[in-house]
Design a binder for these strands. Structure first.
Lengths: 343, 343
DNA sequence: GTGAAAGCGCTAACAG
DNA sequence: CTGTTAGCGCTTTCAC
């Protein structure tokens, strides 16, 4: 019933296979009445062209892959990746691309990912979340000439296209805000410093302190790994150094840190202020609600797909490099509201 | 470089295309030394068969689709769907299937979903989240003879395969637990009662009360829609009826409800106890931590893929119906811990 | 065991 | 404008 071919439709409409193909692809060279007749048959039979065949003939599948590397699976407790995926999926809908999802989870998956992803004609291109793995994968993709775009700024690799938010600028803005509010001992709980995001946000923190005349106190810098637990642990370590404000590299870490601060008997935000990073669903849950940096995640996903398609259509050279702007969202956790009332 | 074909490999190995194909598919009828030679060439050249071609020849793509209907996109703030997706993706990895993700977001997407998903030879089967849309889609899939499995118990449709958790039994268990703890006025904030999940959990609540001799008070039943906001609003409505415990149909609603209770000056869990549903990442965030029903989500996703593959391999008749067990996780929000200490 | 040849369903020159 | 024909890269009878 649904297993019709172009040939079947052609027979039913009394034309040749090519004509039907032209109609399907809205090629201009078809007489109006013929087109109408064919369209009717298609309508009545519910014919849809077989994608595998079309892909084979055209060397184009209108399907792209999203690869989320290992580190990520544990990140699924953080809403970042779901939202990113959602944004990308929506963009794919708009461009009528199909999205293949590749979650690289075990070291085994890591081994099998390249073959699964590289089969020519199957995927037109790839969105690759930067992270733990990838370097060898990237090399292979480059030599295989497969269009791809890195999500996040890659570590070392240089001749590739990527899209990222401007983490340095964002962290700089967040910390500047705290400085402006008069905090003197601003700490940070960083993201994993084996990741570019973690590094960039830390750099923004340092840059703000230095440029604005606060000295950097090493005891005010502790490393986390983007998990709530690491936020909690990080805050416990910071306690001794008596910070009056903490810039956390993610909201979920901020939530962990706030727990720890409260457990230590501190009042929020009076005794200690917090700023997070992400502003996905989590930021409004804690009490006080988090001041944070909003990720432009929907636009990010959309732009990523757009650029990947550009890479596919117009070639991968020169590499595209995109940095997107963020926005600071001021709520109660930074103490700004109280201060404004008091002053 | 990576654009090798079977033919190329054949030439390099000095054999015919068929032989290489046999080697690639580990067909027995190949002499050992020939096989070895061919394998070497494959190794050296990094050849991978073109999936589109193979799909066309075999009428099998080893790719399945996951369709999440409209209602879901707003649900992405709830960790349920991300986790489900993750579980399914991992299962796909294990079975070496590729996962296509279809987020049906706008009414427009709803229109285009069938053609995108039905193209024969492109997807071997479909996982369909039950929800708002779907009835017409389901009909079309049935007549098109495409293997699919509904995630969640479908409303009306009857001759289809589905997998769900046993929501009635789970809610029954949760409410029974509250009864056992001695609560007298147990309320519920339901999920959307236009969804089977919402209905089933409500039914479990009612069943427990009735079977265990508590009368059902209509003022203790309010309807939510699985969002935090609806939890908050629901609790505000319940306040007048003075419940001493509330069974919420999801953790995120429980969090909203707890906020509302606290805003009304109630102490948790002393003045009012809460039980949620899901036990994904959210349950341990609030203070007190949530007693809840744990969704066996990883097993669920895995089982879903397994059954879909069974449907693909062994035919879609008879329809498979699976209900999975849940587990109650007791934390502080239900008051069980205090009670045990006091008694 | 191995190769030749047909065919999966579609697109795209190429003739007419 | 329309039909014929030759692939796209792989699997799979069918001979040998």
């Amino acid at each position: 019933m649904a297993d019709l071919t172009l040939e079947d439709v052609a027979k039913l409409a009394g034309v040749s296979r090519s004509t039907v193909s032209r109609v399907v692809n809205s090629h201009p060279n078809v007489k109006d009445d013929v087109r109408k007749r064919v369209l009717e048959v298609i309508q009545n039979t519910g014919f849809h062209p077989n994608l595998a065949a079309r892909t084979l003939a055209l060397q184009r599948s209108w399907m792209i892959g999203l690869v989320l590397p290992r580190s990520v699976s544990s990140f699924f407790s953080d809403p970042y990746f779901p939202r990113l995926t959602q944004g990308i999926a929506q963009a794919c809908n708009q461009f009528t691309y199909t999205l293949g999802l590749f979650l690289v989870d075990t070291p085994e998956d890591e081994q099998t990912i390249y073959p699964r992803v590289s089969r020519r004609g199957f995927l037109d291109g790839l969105l690759l979340q930067s992270g733990q793995i990838g370097e060898q994968l990237i090399d292979r993709l480059v030599t295989a000439n497969i269009p791809f775009l890195i999500l996040g700024r890659p570590h070392h690799t240089d001749h590739v296209s990527y899209i990222d938010v401007d983490n340095v600028a964002a962290a700089y803005e967040a910390v500047s805000h705290l400085i402006r509010l008069g905090y003197q001992r601003i700490a940070t709980i960083t993201g994993g410093t084996n990741t570019t995001v973690g590094l960039d946000r830390k750099q923004g923190y340092l840059k703000a302190l230095i440029e604005q005349g606060q000295s950097v106190d090493e005891t005010l810098v502790v490393e986390g790994d983007f998990t709530e637990a690491s936020g909690y642990a990080g805050m416990r370590k910071l306690l001794a150094a008596k910070p009056d404000a903490v810039f956390c590299a993610s909201d979920i870490m901020a939530i962990g840190a706030m727990h720890a601060a409260r457990d230590a008997g501190l009042r929020l935000p009076d005794d200690i202020a917090f700023v997070g990073f992400d502003d996905l669903s989590l930021a409004t849950l804690p009490e006080p609600r988090l001041t944070t940096i909003r990720q432009p995640i929907y636009r990010f996903g959309f732009k990523a797909v757009e650029i990947l398609i550009d890479l596919i259509d117009h070639g991968i050279q020169p590499p595209r490099r995109i940095l997107m702007d963020t926005e600071m969202i001021i709520r109660e956790s930074c103490g700004a509201k109280q201060k404004m009332v008091i002053e």
